[in-house]
């Protein structure tokens, strides 16, 4: 009886498989976008951009994210997409070297691979869309210099908030920030890591500010504390509002929830990277490559590698917006 059941199941499976294979239509083109981590709010506009491009251009788009911001998990997602036979992949790399091998394997398999937000410059990817993290950090440093250009203080002490220690994108931002302020009277005196955890980021900022009310400035290498309501940060609010002229805050990332912080004068300058365009233009230009059309807005931009050497990166610069107390209302209106 069992044998009969087994044989029947096999026959059904084989027949079904043959029917499916015979009747299969030409596979619909799919373009996958792979952020660094599921649930990271920074990437949500990129998902919206990807979906809008999919709708506008009539192509199926997939949002495939690893549950944690780890390069190995991203490699596994990429391998799955190669097996699935997608036509294109846009990826924000958790680490440039760790992703290089799998990107090259995908390209060798005939998939158009591009990077956005965080590049893998030595891989075979077609182009990079976004603003270089080092550059974003550098712009943040320039903003800090600008905010203190009229200050006659001999030494400006900055506390720095980072995410997961050693994360490549955040390290690049920190390096850019420190390079920009190098040689000035601005000095980073504290670095606290919140492990990408919003609750921990609030605890670190609150504890450090309470213990060091004379700190001059904060540089947030990511916008974790601005996902919460200002009411969750009474010490920080007290510190900033006590001396808005001398206490300054520069942060990367702008979220809808950042507006409440601007309303209270709790952020001086926020560097916004256009994640929506990263998602939209990645899908659009992957499709252009697949259709034999040129990539729009492509230019070679200098990029500094870890060893200090400079390479030219084929890039679509999605630009940065500097959101200030003076212009934030216009930004959020848009």
């Amino acid at each position: 009886m069992k044998r009969l059941l087994l044989v029947t199941m096999l026959v059904v499976l084989v027949a079904g498989g043959l029917l499916f294979a015979g009747g299969a239509k030409e596979k619909e083109r799919e373009i996958a976008v792979v952020p660094q981590q599921l649930g990271n709010v920074v990437f949500l506009p990129a998902e919206e951009g990807m979906k809008a491009a999919g709708k506008d251009l009539g192509v199926k788009v997939l949002w495939e994210a690893p549950p944690k911001a780890e390069a190995q998990l991203q490699v596994e997602v990429m391998e799955g997409l190669i097996e699935r036979g997608v036509a294109g992949i846009a990826i924000s790399c958790n680490h440039p070297d760790a992703l290089q091998g799998v990107i090259n394997r995908a390209v060798a398999a005939g998939i158009v691979v591009t990077t956005f937000d965080a590049d893998s410059p030595l891989s075979d990817r077609a182009f990079f869309a976004g603003t270089n993290n080092y550059q974003a950090g550098y712009i943040s440093g320039q903003e800090m210099l600008r905010l203190y250009k009229d200050s006659n203080k001999a030494r400006i002490r900055v506390a720095l908030l980072e995410g997961i220690p050693g994360a490549f994108d955040i390290e690049s931002r920190k390096r850019g920030f420190k390079d920009a302020i190098a040689g000035s009277n601005i000095e980073v005196v504290y670095e606290g890591a919140c492990d990408d955890d919003v609750d921990k980021s609030v605890i670190i900022v609150e504890d450090y500010t309470r213990a060091n009310p004379n700190i001059d400035a904060w540089f947030m290498a990511g916008g974790w504390p601005y996902i919460v309501q200002p009411g969750a940060m009474p010490e920080y609010t007290k510190w900033k509002q006590a001396d808005p002229v001398n206490h300054k805050v520069v942060t990367l990332d702008v979220f809808p929830s950042s507006e409440a912080f601007f309303d209270l004068g709790l952020i001086d300058s926020a560097i916004d990277q256009d994640f929506y365009q990263m998602g939209y233009l990645s899908v659009k230009n992957i499709l252009n490559i697949l259709d034999g059309k040129p990539v729009e807005g492509l230019e070679d931009i200098e990029n500094e590698l870890d060893d200090g050497s400079i390479i030219m990166v084929p890039s679509i610069d999605t630009g940065t917006k500097i959101v200030l107390l003076e212009n934030y209302k216009d930004y959020f209106k848009d």
Binding site: G39, N40, V198, D199, V202, I227, Q229, G231, A232
Partner: peptide, 10 residues
């Protein structure tokens, strides 16, 4: 409630 936001990553 402490943070004033419900996060799926919390």
């Amino acid at each position: 409630s402490k943070l004033g936001v419900g996060q799926p990553t919390a």
